[in-house]
Simulated scan of single mutants.
Amino acid sequence: MSVAIYRSEEGAAEVRQRYQEVLNDWPVPAEQVRVPTREGDTFVLVSGPPDAPPLVLLHGAGANASMWREDITTWAGHFRTYAVDIVGEPGLSAPSRPAVNSPAPARWLDDVVDGLGLTRVSMVAASFGGWLAVDYAVRRPDRVTRLALLCPGGLGKQRTIRVLRALLVRSFGRWGARRSVRALTGLNSPQDAPVLESLMLTFAHFKPRMEPLPLFSDAALRSLTIPVQVTVGDRDAMFDSRGTARRIRQCLPHAEVHMLPGTGHAVLGRTDSVLAFLRS
């Protein structure tokens, strides 16, 4: 379903211009590909050796492939990376939002994977992208070989009330927007300033998804026999990260689980940990 995902066309142009500046300064050689899908064209940033194992990257809601800028140099040295702009998010893919309580997201990913000429892939995915990756691995167990999940949705309960409270303060101008983004992401240190500013620009113009993500059943999680790494922050304002860790340990005793102290929803700087898992 195609929807209006920006508050104005001027705002959309400003977000796209900022994203294009990041793409123009991408730290490794990259091919920009548009894959036709049943949800519309999907933008994919492709890096790394053509003959290396394929690695699909799925960002979180309210983001795009620029999320992986600090990781890509390392990962693209070992994998053929496919940083996908999820449809309906502030990237360069179609403004379509397939219903999350349906097979539609997996069918969209089928089109992406097939359109890229891939058969079986590893995935690194964050937040909403993590939900998409788990959903795909559950529905298409023959297509996913390994999952590295950062603050994934669908495992621990979604903190809807906290999110709504944080969104309410956005109406208080720039101060409110900054406080809202900090509350939702947990980004508070000076080195987080560039990410914080980028998110503030995006959410000044972008209309985020508001529907809750379905929780995966224990049976669905237990069906995952592939290697899984899950990394969460113990101060996540959006998902019950302790519940996420508990369910993964119960349902997937073979999984690798990391609980990061003092960390919110934005789990950054995990480049080497994820690489070690992907290559293990």
Rank of each mutant, 00 (worst) to 15 (best):
Leu260Met: 12
Asp85Asn: 09
Asn24Glu: 15
Val44Trp: 03
Met123Ala: 10
Gly176Ile: 09
Ala177Asp: 10
Asp135Arg: 12
Asp142Trp: 04
Val15Arg: 01
Arg34Ile: 07
Gln17Ala: 14
Arg143Cys: 07
Arg165Asn: 04
Pro261Thr: 03
Val274Gly: 11
Arg209Pro: 02
Glu10Arg: 05
Thr81Tyr: 13
Arg97Glu: 13
Arg97His: 07
Ser8Thr: 08
Gly115His: 10
Ser122Lys: 12
Arg178Ser: 12
Cys251Asn: 13
Pro152Cys: 03
Ala83Arg: 10
Glu31Ile: 04
Val46Cys: 13
Cys251Asp: 12
Tyr19Ile: 13
Asn24Phe: 03
Arg182Phe: 01
His78Asp: 15
Ala193His: 11
Tyr19Trp: 13
Gly269Leu: 05
Ala13Glu: 11
Gly130Val: 04
Pro105Val: 07
Pro98Ala: 06
Gln20Ile: 11
Tyr136Val: 03
Ala193Tyr: 09
Phe172Ala: 12
Ala204Phe: 00
Val124Met: 03
Ala52Ile: 07
Gly176Cys: 06
Gln158Phe: 09
Ile5His: 00
Leu132Tyr: 01
Leu150Cys: 08
Ile72Gln: 02
Leu199Ala: 07
Leu150Lys: 05
Thr81Ser: 13
Val56Phe: 04
Val169Ser: 10
Ala94Leu: 03
Ser180Gly: 05
Ser122Asn: 01
Pro261Trp: 01
Val44Thr: 13
Pro54Val: 04
Glu31His: 11
Leu215Trp: 03
Lys207Arg: 15
Ala52Glu: 10
Val230Met: 12
Glu211Thr: 14
Thr271Phe: 02
Gly60Cys: 09
Thr42Asn: 04
Glu39Thr: 13
Leu201Thr: 11
Val44Phe: 05
Asp192Ser: 15
Ser273Glu: 15
Ala245Cys: 07
Thr202His: 01
Arg38Glu: 04
Leu199Arg: 05
Ala220Gly: 01
Glu197Lys: 14
Pro90Phe: 00
Leu147Ala: 06
Arg162Leu: 13
Ser280Thr: 15
Ile86Val: 15
Leu201Arg: 08
His59Asp: 08
Arg146Leu: 02
Leu224Lys: 01
Val15Gly: 03
Pro29Thr: 09
Lys207Cys: 10
Trp108Gln: 10
Arg174Lys: 14
Gln17Met: 07
Val3Ser: 06
Asp114Gly: 08
Arg279Asp: 10
Arg7Trp: 00
Arg107Gln: 14
Asp71Asn: 15
Pro141Met: 05
His78Arg: 15
Trp75Ser: 03
Val15Pro: 01
Met1Ile: 08
Val112Tyr: 08
Gly176Gln: 07
Pro90Lys: 00
Pro49Ile: 11
Arg120Thr: 14
Ala193Met: 09
Ser223Glu: 00
Trp108His: 11
Phe216Ala: 08
Asn188His: 14
Phe206Thr: 03
Trp108Pro: 02
Val46Lys: 12
Ala76Asn: 06
